[in-house]
Amino acid sequence: MTLEIWLAFVATSAVLLVIPGPTILLVVSYALGQGWRTALPTAIGVALGDFTAMTLCLLGLGALLAASATIFTVLKWIGAAYLVWLGIKLWRAGGALDAKPRTDAASSLKMLGHAWIVTALNPKGLVFFVAFLPQFIDLKLPFLPQVGVLAATFLVMAFTNVVAYALVASRARTMARSARTLGIINKAGGSLLIGAGIATVTLRASQS
């Protein structure tokens, strides 16, 4: 894997992680209700959930690549189209984030488990990983070393993102729930996702 591909993965992952979804909604709800102490357990739970989802995804991708490189390539094209569609959807989403403070006295273990379940069992997350990860896998190179680097990078970034969201939500609660702020994030992220999908298709076409 080249440094350029890895940096592209980091940049795209950063955009995807910062966009609010079910996991971030849960994290913000806990932080709004119980403060900064929720950051570590929810971050660990999200990282474990992403690890679970990515493992299931990579097992399937590995089997698919072993069966047919052509089908794997077709999946990469479909994935690029999915990124563009997701970007358009995010652009039109506005700034809605119905994060209600969770005031129930949840233990750290309960928060960890809740974050893990929400992240791991989110079907949209599995679809996302199937569409997203193949974009950065070079069929000419060994599969496992590449996905190992990508998975480790994503998990570290996911952990850091959740900690940041929890701390911001606990300290700056108005900003964390601001429709304007979330609208800007969604539009910026949507634009970058559309660009990433188009860039992937353009690059692949120039290499064919």
Rank of each mutant, 00 (worst) to 15 (best):
I78W: 07
V156H: 01
T73G: 02
S170V: 05
V18C: 14
T119M: 12
A99D: 00
F159T: 08
V84S: 00
L3Y: 11
N161S: 10
L90T: 10
I19H: 00
A96D: 13
T70Q: 13
I184Y: 04
M54N: 04
W91C: 03
L193N: 06
F128C: 03
L61K: 14
D138F: 01
A152F: 07
T2L: 11
F128T: 12
S178G: 07
A39V: 12
P145M: 08
M54E: 10
A166L: 10
D50H: 15
A158I: 02
S178T: 04
T42G: 03
L26H: 09
P22S: 15
F143S: 00
G94A: 08
W91L: 10
G49P: 12
A47Q: 02
I24F: 13
V15Q: 04
Y165I: 06
N161G: 00
V84N: 07
L97S: 03
F9Q: 08
V15K: 01
L133K: 01
L3S: 02
T23H: 07
M1L: 01
L203Y: 06
W77P: 05
F159E: 01
A8G: 07
Q207Y: 03
M54W: 01
T2R: 02
S107H: 05
A199H: 04
F136T: 02
F159K: 06
G95M: 11
F129W: 15
P123D: 10
Q135E: 06
A93M: 04
V127H: 03
S108E: 09
G195T: 08
G45W: 05
T2I: 08
I44L: 05
L61A: 08
G197Q: 08
A106G: 01
L65M: 11
G21L: 07
V130Q: 10
A80K: 08
K187P: 02
I184R: 14
I44R: 03
T181C: 13
E4Y: 06
V168A: 04
A176W: 09
T12V: 09
A152W: 07
G35Y: 04
G87C: 13
K76C: 06
W6L: 15
V201P: 04
A43G: 04
K187L: 05
L167C: 04
L56K: 12
L25D: 01
L133W: 07
L16N: 12
L203T: 07
W6F: 14
L121C: 13
T103R: 14
V27P: 14
V46T: 11
A8S: 12
I71F: 12
R177F: 09
